[in-house]
Simulated assay, not measured.
Amino acid sequence: MTLDAAYSNTGAVPNAASYPEAWEEAAFETRSVEQAFGRARLNIPYGDGARQKFDLFLPAGRAEGIVVFIHGGYWMKFDHSFWSHLAKGAQERGWAVAIPGYTLAPEARISDITGEIGQAISAAAGYVNGPIVLTGHSAGGHLVARMAMADAPLSPDISARLQRIVPISPVSDLRPLMQTAMNDTLKLDAAEAKAESPALHPKSLDVPVSVWVGADELPAFLDQADWLRQAWNAPVTRAAGKHHFNVIDPLADPDSDLIADLLRA
């Protein structure tokens, strides 16, 4: 038995193919505006890899802290340029927002990507003082949850600045993906799947974690959110009327419940 259909969001969301183009257009418009106002720093390198870059969006005044958003795409798709518009919610609330890219599978294993995200968070945090909030979507939700585990690739100084982690539609247990065709690219084995699964390990950092997932998502993603809730005693919000591709839209709205949860001290 394979689990391809269980984890195929493109097969479950109406007009799924239209979303990447819409994200790319909205992100381009946001970058153009923010550059014109002098509030965007683009393609800042955090490593030597071609995809190891992040964009930084600054608020109008002094930053309250920094939010780092990690994108999804099953560790295989997209780059940091698709998501700039999602910075607007936190930015308008006075926070800086960093959006990094990372090396994609199969060039990098998921364990390698975890290390890159640690580098990206550390580099971005060097530009802004104050607390750090982490959020990410789907594979990005996995990656930000991964930062709360005992072997997270963060220094004690960076870990001490973490104020909140909000995984959105995270993949918290990677073992089911070994039964999908994606694993031809991801190349997960049992040891890596277990080691990289937040739901299979205790949360080691004393930092609040809250999980969001669309109420209209595939059962597999509702389960993945619930597994993290059970493992970490983390509250889960099932966002009404949201599926896997639009559950992140409220990040662009400074008055949304998602932004309120994200920036809660």
Rank of each mutant, 00 (worst) to 15 (best):
N129G: 13
L154R: 01
A120G: 05
I158W: 00
V133T: 13
T135A: 05
G126S: 02
I117C: 01
Q52E: 15
L200R: 13
N43H: 12
Y74M: 10
L177A: 03
A36R: 13
R51F: 06
I259E: 08
K88Y: 07
V209H: 02
I110P: 03
A124S: 01
Y46M: 04
F78Q: 09
R109C: 07
F221I: 07
V97T: 02
M147K: 11
Y19K: 05
I70C: 03
A231M: 09
F54Y: 15
S122M: 01
P176W: 12
S172R: 06
R264F: 04
A160W: 00
R229G: 08
A160D: 00
F245E: 04
G126P: 02
H80E: 03
M182E: 13
L162E: 00
D255P: 05
P153G: 07
P156T: 02
H244L: 06
V213E: 04
A220K: 13
S159G: 10
R31W: 09
A225V: 06
L42Y: 11
E21F: 07
T2F: 08
A50G: 09
Q163S: 12
F82A: 10
E24P: 02
Q163F: 00
T30L: 09
V68I: 14
I44F: 04
H85Q: 15
A50W: 09
S172M: 06
G61P: 07
V209L: 03
A148F: 00
V128A: 09
I248W: 04
